[in-house]
Write a protein that binds this DNA or RNA. Structure first.
Lengths: 205, 205, 205, 205
DNA sequence: ACGTAAGCGAGACGGTACGTCGCGTCTTACC
DNA sequence: GGTAAGACGCGACGTACCGTCTCGCTTACGT
């Protein structure tokens, strides 16, 4: 397999899609995702509007697929790391690192996209990815979570949102610390917060 | 004061605006805020479309104003409480309580509105209100915040997002605990998380 | 009669109606009758829009009534002249004279009103008045008309339109001759043209 | 030339425009041009309202362009006739004939359009075309006009309006005579009236 | 002169049409 | 087969006027 001449391998196709994606990035930064129209995109991408529709369902489809690719990439990186010798003091998950690197590469795009001018569906999907990561983390070193009196869903939602908040802060303040440092800090935050959320085990409902 | 005959006192005006607001609530729950059109709203509110535009700029304006009112109400409640004798063990801020009660009263609306079918601007404004609350809290009992090595903005963003996450969980799971309990829990979470975020005071950048 | 206390005698009523009429005149000159709205009129007349509707059906009603008044005035003048000693060489019908004087008094209004920015219904009514005049003229000194091979209607339409054309020329060129001279010329034109229209009595259809 | 693939050659375009034009004709006859709305037109033409706006600025644009085409056609016919051997007794200008034929083909439309339910701008443009014709005529066989004591503009306005009056009479009475006869009569009228207008050279102002 | 019926200002409201914009589908011709 | 060009149906937008309708205030009138 993989040697068949696919439509997706067509030079023109790749060129068109790449142009469209870049146009969406640029325009979103310029005027906010909401205000971007397919006509805008086509014009900026120097592609006919009907060509856009040949490749994407709508503007949401462009960013949805992009997010999927990023997520797939992160997953691949994470998978590749499994079984690797654990590094010392501060361990940086390869998946998270890849994700953050991609985000930094398109910092302004993500900042807008996850903000008030953005796409709620995009933000939601992004949050889901984050939640999934934490769910796995909790499952892995789950003793703490198990001991908590709070539902896992709640813990996950709490930490995922918080993480996204921190990430947004990072984006909106010009990424003041390195991606690596951010990964470490987030990791620490996560774990501590996890402990915290379940922390004070006062008698509940 | 307050005895002048204002336009806003007009019975018809109040009726129209109330109907519109209710229509927006209902329709948002039914099909998601994004999918709601002004025509929809007018039809459901049994009001002419032009009447809608006489009172609101667009559908966003309706929810924006609503949020402002809720926020104003909460602020009033909070102000009224100042100087009251502190209750015993678990203190529930009156402002927060009022806010949560209003949210519970329109639980399904808020659930949709803050989710993937919602309005990013609404969610953003909501988050801002939450952040403002925490900023005040930090300013009041500020010793902890001051001792933290992390920027206040970051702490605030982190906790505000986390709180919203918890709130969403609460909404999406049918409000399993009472508003009062939620207020208490959120308060505890806030304080603990605040300590946590600044927690491990390792030397930072 | 005529001593009853009518609504129409109320000072306020007369004042409002007068203001409205003047506003219509001014605005029509400024932007063409078509472009004038009732709101425009009310604003210019310094009268509430609902007051406008108390007195007139719509903007057409204003000019329609005005034309009726002018026409009534002309008729009165004409009637008053009946039985008067015929003046010498050039006889000027009093009705026509009154009409032309009124028109000159509002020259710019009539110019616009009968032109491409005007009201077709107004122009039509105006033409009908003119046609009526000629029909009477033909009926009076009818021997010529009778001898003509052309239908009276056609003759009347032909001359009425022609007269209006001349009148428009007069208005559009700044009324280069006096009203009296115009009345005389039009009269001459009418009679001559009348003869002419029926003139060459070649065998017809 | 003329073999390039133009937008206007598109079958769909021609079809849409033709349908719209016909709808305007029909609706104008039915309810008067003033009362016709773009929605009416689109519905009748079985075309979407936005398609209407893709081709025309507004309803006036439709009739304006139509008139231009008619005028262009007449001009072409007139030009083609230049240099032809003059026929005998009654010469019928080819341009005028074409114009009258077109009018007869849409008699009811023109009747309404030039009447009280019509469009003053349309009537005005129509009159201008007529005036242009007479201006040319006067310029050609100009000895008479030159000898007149009246301004050419006045003569032209007078005759053009008169002609239109006769034409309207013809339309409103069911076109009692043939187009050819009408053309001949109008021609005779014109010349005679021309002589008449300048006729009685009494001392003027 | 004065009490009252009217005119009047203010403006909400239901309607209808406007002209614009963006969407997603489609056809046709080119390459 | 991908692409450009662009017509088309659809439907929402926000605006502009329309004509009708309360609802109080004020003002000129007629006794």
């Amino acid at each position: 397999m993989a040697h068949k001449s696919q439509t997706k391998d067509d030079v023109r196709v790749r060129r068109s899609q790449q142009r469209v994606r870049q146009a969406v990035f640029d325009l979103t930064v310029e005027k906010g995702f909401t205000a971007v129209t397919v006509s805008d995109i086509a014009a900026r991408a120097q592609v006919n509007r009907s060509t856009f529709y040949r490749h994407f369902l709508d503007k949401h489809d462009v960013v949805r697929r992009y997010l999927d690719e990023v997520q797939a990439l992160a997953a691949r990186r994470a998978a590749a790391q499994v079984g690797q010798p654990r590094p010392g003091a501060e361990h940086i998950p390869a998946g998270l690192l890849a994700l953050l690197q991609e985000i930094q590469g398109h910092a302004r795009f993500f900042k807008v996209m996850l903000g008030k001018q953005g796409d709620p569906a995009f933000a939601h999907r992004f949050r889901q990815i984050t939640e999934k990561r934490y769910r796995l983390l909790f499952a892995a070193g789950g003793q703490q979570a198990a001991s908590s009196s709070l539902p896992v869903d709640l813990q996950v939602a709490y930490i995922a949102h918080a993480t996204l908040g921190a990430l947004l802060w990072w984006l909106e303040h010009g990424q003041p610390i390195s991606v690596e440092q951010l990964a470490i800090d987030l990791g620490r935050l996560n774990l501590t917060a996890a402990g915290m959320v379940m922390g004070p085990p006062g008698p509940r409902h």
